[in-house]
């Protein structure tokens, strides 16, 4: 999952630094992720993982680090398994 997130972040994040230099818990907004790029990333993640982010996860915090994105995606896919 992390590898896919990193690949999509490289493609859609528009970051001035290489994604490889970022730790999983590194702050993506500090690294230069704009609001608009975070939305593009969100849409790409939805397509790649075939999920839809629920309302309560559509916020800055969910996309603040690679680890946070991974946690959000896990929450969605876990819910799906329960349902």
């Amino acid at each position: 999952m992390i590898a896919t997130i990193r690949a999509l972040l490289t493609q859609h994040g528009g970051l001035p630094v290489s994604v490889d230099t970022l730790a999983d818990d590194g702050d993506l907004y500090d690294a230069g992720l704009s609001s608009f790029a975070s939305v593009q990333l969100m849409l790409a993640l939805e397509e790649a993982f075939d999920v839809e982010f629920p309302e309560h996860l559509l916020n800055r915090k969910s996309f603040s680090s690679i680890a946070a994105i991974s946690a959000a995606l896990s929450e969605i896919t876990d819910d799906r398994q329960v349902a």
Partner: peptide, 14 residues
Amino acid sequence: GRAGRMMGASQREQ
């Protein structure tokens, strides 16, 4: 749209 909800939340948080 849905992307917009995220933009809105982000605008508010900041």
